[in-house]
Design a binder for these strands. Sequence first.
DNA 1: CTGAAAGCGCTTACAG
DNA 2: CTGAAAGCGCTTACAG
Lengths: 327, 327
Amino acid sequence: MAKASEKHRVTSADVARACGVSRATVSYVLNNDPRQTIPPETRERILQAAQKLGYSPFAPARLLRSGQSQLVLAVLPFEQVDPALARSLKELEQRLARHDLTLLSYVGMHPSIGTTHPSAHITPSVLLSYADQDDPLVAAFLQQFHAPILHLLGDARLEEQIGAMQAEYLIQCGKRSLIFLDSERKDVQRLSSHRFRGVQQACLRWECTEPVLRTLPSSREEARTILRDTLASCDHSWGICCYNDEVAIAALAALADENITIPHMAAVVGCDNIPLAQWSLPALTTIAFHNESALDPLIEAIVALSRGETVTWKTQKTLTLIKRASA
Amino acid sequence: MAKASEKHRVTSADVARACGVSRATVSYVLNNDPRQTIPPETRERILQAAQKLGYSPFAPARLLRSGQSQLVLAVLPFEQVDPALARSLKELEQRLARHDLTLLSYVGMHPSIGTTHPSAHITPSVLLSYADQDDPLVAAFLQQFHAPILHLLGDARLEEQIGAMQAEYLIQCGKRSLIFLDSERKDVQRLSSHRFRGVQQACLRWECTEPVLRTLPSSREEARTILRDTLASCDHSWGICCYNDEVAIAALAALADENITIPHMAAVVGCDNIPLAQWSLPALTTIAFHNESALDPLIEAIVALSRGETVTWKTQKTLTLIKRASA
DNA sequence: CTGAAAGCGCTTACAG
DNA sequence: CTGAAAGCGCTTACAG
């Protein structure tokens, strides 16, 4: 089934021949050109033949002709595409399809030498970047596509706001000693450092002590040890800002292992509001992004850019703190 | 930065003109054609000019010429791309890049009428399907790409094995009343039903009672109720086979809310071994796939198919039960 | 209403 | 060693 027999590609000329018309006519019919009046009888015959021969236009030829690729490429540098992102990609894909645009994703990004840049094989008309917009390597990589770029991730300022929001909530809960719990994931260091800076700033503003920076180890045993030792360093009750919900849920488990009562002895705030956040013990207090409101303008911006128009668009993310039991 | 000024595409002719050579020479140099001997001086000059003009070959033209797209498309029908999948995609992407192949992903799949099929805009030379290979809608969708297809997900039999493995482990633990806990996610129904069938078969084989099928609601309150009522229906100790780890972790939380001791009163087995599985309370017993061993042959198969060669390849997934505290 | 022709940008035999 | 030319498959003015 679906043999690799690229022996002979079915071409619009084949369809034309089969119907005894010219390739132009085939093209007119298949593209529904409104400026042409094709007799319904002919039209039907062509449609039939195309169907029977299994003809579909060869994309590169069409692109070469039109210069317009109708392709939107989402560049996802994360090792771990989070579920929320996948969902929003699917949504995006469906919305864009109605505008005759195809959304594709590229996972990974190697400005590594030696391997070909993807632009050699694909020519997107718009780029959606989920990468750090301040990273020069990222910028260079994206640049090579020669396509307009929309940055969907927040900028450094938004990331700082996230950290600050976590910290301020915890401070309001009466926690005056804060920990920032980092992920081990390398690909996320920059994001993480922005959020930590937000926590620092909040501590400064509210005259708390400098927050402690820790990285959550991947082993549960080590995580217990690190958290125990850190908490023992002072007998305040602690507030823990986690890089994201995964880290937070892991922290919750390690704290439970140590019989540390939550949120009394330590309160935990995550970020992302992943589906599992409501299922932790205790349920996780976290920060959710809301950019659904901005989906329509985003679609519009993408469509306009794909047509070569110039457009200004900025991420409009609003942060909401989702209060549950962990803080 | 990266303006949408598609005003005038930089073409190989531009580079040739800038250097006072022919387009052929430019092409030879840029593609490192081994059959040509270009004076290093000229070569250098061309490379310089290409660099300065920001020239990169226009993919569609090149594809039209070669007929070979060098594009591998992963079709992901899941609403929720799981982290393990994302990681393996990244790995795949890097490996394929060394063979000058670009891996792109397409999230979603609408055999919906009215919208254009992605094949209108992209011509992959190989398809990697993560969709249900028995679903005729899926088959029709994939077919339209006219490219060879590799099915990476297991077939129905493997899915049944997963269910059976969960069930048999629980039965060995002494649980003779089993529940299969399903996800609410629509896009996963078929997979889920295969796994349930595996559980049923195991129960038959081991002469247990027919397993109970339940769907985990998205609200924690409702989940508690459903689980409580189901468990109360008989005073055996129960074994719960969960569609995947997310469902399992949620179930663990709901059971804890009801003060049901795990694994004594109810034992829980998940599937996937997601990173969070080791961080649940108690840590989750689950089933892991191992197909890393099969990565090399997979790469080879993809490369061969992209060259139009015919190849037989089959998913080689081995299942391992990861024993933790929940069962 | 239909067909012959040009041209998108590229690579690659083929002559010089 | 370099250049002129053909052709990949498509769409779209332009003639008839």
